[in-house]
Design a binder for these strands. Structure first.
Length: 422
RNA sequence: GAGCCCGUAGCUCAGGUGGUUAGAGCGCCAGGUUGUGGCCCUGGAGGCCGGGGGUUCAAGUCCCCUCGGGCUCCCCA
């Protein structure tokens, strides 16, 4: 096929009208449900200062070290946001949202950017929705965040998921654990995979979710982080599990679950779906009690999650779930001749004012072609107007699905259509 | 960053061992019905066979390069 001159960037896709319908459906659902949970939407810029993302997520993370779209303007370096927790925290601090009192419950929907090699369920521009509760260290907050996440998938009909749960504790117990883990691995360091060798120094925890075959035996015998948790962390983790139990949410504890960003503390979780293929994480999140302070705010505990929207759609497709409705229009004005076309143009607004959607042909096509178009557009009614109708002021109203026609005045037609409508 | 697979109409795909005007279904447009959609029939538009180079009398078909796409590893949403 002849190649188009201009195309989207590798891994970035156009969302076309037929697809947008399901996006709007999902976005509306998220907004409705988030409002029910009393969350408020926050929108932040697409780009952020590089320093925020590097400090927030951690220099050594995969995202920062190799997946960032960055550019500079003058002295300043920017990145296209790869996730939204750090930007939301920035906005929280910058705008002193803590001064609104109580805990802040925020949700977001929007595009993120990561310069990875695209594959199924992975794009360079992708979309996430998520929420953050800022200001509470209570396990109730963890439970609510997880409950909302699960709730959305259940609403849609995606129920065959696994919630993986872990606690990575506070920094002190994590340091102790790191030391123990390194001590455990040290004798066999040479036998570990290349990636793991590198991580041994700068990010030993991530060795735990290595999928390299050669690492498996050493991971299996490794100490488990839960044994190193402080009393406080254990208490928190137990509370989270207790609350999830109260909510009837089942989970699977996974002591090897370590999340990709450095800012996580205590609770970590991921929602996995068997319908996604290689990229099986639908959503993930956790607690980040130190991030606000790290970024320059007052010490503020927080917890949140982010979910991939494209991945949610993939799961829907696998499960045969259709989101959103068919396109349709209430009225299609079919005209014959110039006078009728002019009449049609001026009458469209009458229908629109009454709350009905209305359209007509713009291409001067035959009546047959217009009827065909009305059918394709899924019109509920066709209003047919030619010379006869203009003279008698009696217009033909055709119910497309029923194939019934009546000759009526415009007022009667308006009433009939909008009556049906409300 | 590494591996594997694939590029023929808008879409899904046919085109044995190279052979003359490159096909089908769906979709699109028009006609059959001088004022009536979906079904049916007929016709039409639409392809530098992703691009470049090579082999050959002859390349959609064989070889090389390149671009684009898909999947996988790593990691994440």
């Amino acid at each position: 096929m002849a190649q188009p001159i201009y195309t989207t960037h590798h891994g970035m896709v156009d969302i076309l009208p037929d697809e947008v319908r399901k996006w709007q459906f999902l976005e509306n659902l998220i907004r409705e449900e988030a409002e029910k949970f009393n969350f408020e939407e926050i929108r932040t810029p697409i780009m952020e200062k590089t320093e925020l993302i590097v400090r927030g997520l951690g220099q050594m993370t995969d995202i920062v070290s190799k997946e960032i779209f960055s550019f500079s303007r003058g002295e300043d370096n920017y990145v296209l946001r790869p996730e939204l927790t750090a930007p939301v925290v920035r906005a929280f601090v910058e705008n002193r949202l803590d001064q609104r009192g109580g805990s802040q419950k925020l949700y977001y929907i929007g595009p993120m950017f990561r310069a990875e090699r695209p594959q199924k369920g992975r794009q360079r521009q992708f979309h996430q929705f998520g929420l953050e509760i800022m200001g509470s260290s209570d396990a109730l907050a963890d439970a609510e965040v997880i409950a909302f996440m699960i709730h959305i998938y259940h609403k849609i009909g995606i129920t065959n998921t696994t919630l993986k749960l872990n606690s990575i504790g506070d920094p002190e117990s994590r340091d102790q654990y790191k030391r123990a883990l390194k001590a455990h691995l040290k004798p066999d360091l040479e036998k570990l995979s290349e990636v793991s060798k590198k991580r041994y120094e700068n990010n030993p925890l991530r060795i735990l979710d290595s999928k390299e075959e050669e690492d498996r035996p050493f991971i299996e015998t490794a100490p488990v982080i839960t044994e190193f948790l402080s009393e406080k962390s254990v208490k928190h983790y137990n509370k989270v599990k207790e609350y999830l139990g109260d909510l009837g949410i089942t989970y699977e504890e996974d002591p090897y679950l370590v999340r990709g960003m450095d800012y996580y503390t205590e609770t970590a979780f991921e929602l996995i779906s068997p319908d996604l293929g290689a990229q099986d994480a639908l959503a993930g999140g956790g607690r980040y009690d130190l991030l606000v302070e790290e970024i320059g705010g007052l010490p503020t505990p927080a917890v949140g999650f982010a979910a991939g929207m494209e991945r949610l759609f993939i799961a829907c497709e696998e499960l045969g779930i259709r989101l959103g409705s068919e396109k349709k229009v209430d009225v299609y004005i079919v005209t014959l001749g110039d006078a009728a076309r002019k009449w049609g143009l001026t009458q469209l607004s009458k229908f629109r004012e009454k709350g009905a959607s209305a359209t007509m042909d713009y291409m001067g096509r035959s009546m047959k072609a217009q009827m065909k178009d009305a059918n394709r557009e899924n019109a509920r009614f066709a209003v047919i107007v030619g010379e006869n109708e203009l003279n008698t002021r009696q217009f033909t109203l055709r119910n497309m699905a029923a194939s019934e026609e009546n000759s009526l005045t415009l007022d009667a037609i308006l009433q009939k259509i909008t009556g049906h409508h409300t």
